[in-house]
Amino acid sequence: MNGALRTWGSVVRLGVLHHFAWRLDVVIALLSATMVLVLNGSVWEAVADGQSRLGTLTPVELSTYVVIAWCASRVTATRVDENLGQRHASGQLATDLLKPLDLPSYLLARDVGRAAVAAVVTALPLLALGAWWFPLAWPRQPVTWALVAGSVALGVAVGGQIGLLVGMASFRLRRVTGLVSLKEVATALLSGALVPVTLMPDAAAHAVMVLPFAALAHVPAWLFLERATGAEALGLLVAQAAWAAILAVVVRLSWWRALRHLTVEGG
């Protein structure tokens, strides 16, 4: 058990170190995320201008949703798809498989390290900036912060598994970038990161709530607004956890299948 803790702790740490190895990347990611936040926030502010409510949200709630959903999405936006696809294309997968580790778990653990870095160096500064630029509705109950944090953590699990599936799907392609951008568009549109889910037409909003993408941005924002509290809040977390579990099973099955067809080229 102690050994397992050391192993997985070291892999998470690798994710952190790897992210910090390229400091300039971190800075650029923060800059571009800031631009999106300010632009998107301003657009929604203009849309809500003079209105008492947009859908069920007051203008202040709307800005809050937009800021929180975007911050959460920066943490849940995984890189495992790209990582796995590149490893496959370059043949690096061979040396990965020669380590006594379960590769999907290894990549997820690394992604947890990445998410931790993103939370501290991207999401928190973005939140501070968002709070300074836009009027925000802060949670009234301290427990809300814990619910939001738990929800983002579950979002990381869901996002990571989606990433693994995208990465595996890319094994048949020469480059992973096409699939990754497809996933990014789907995530941006369906997770609430850019467009609040509650402002979508009813049918679309219902559909989105059934898909796993809402776990990546909408749920944390919704909890932050205390629109779901108590049992309802727990229900949302359970739904996220259920998605994480379902995706984990799909990942497992796909991985076994992929291993069978993998030919580990080169050498």
Binding site: T7, V11, L14, L17, A21, T95, K99, P100, G266, G267
Partner: peptide, 24 residues
């Protein structure tokens, strides 16, 4: 593999060894 690395490109050699030791 002479043509492929089992270490981590961005890590210092010692960090990579620490990690391998933890993995093994």
């Amino acid at each position: 593999f002479g043509q492929r690395s089992q270490l981590w490109w961005d890590l210092a050699v010692r960090e990579a060894y620490d990690l391998l030791a933890a993995i093994h």
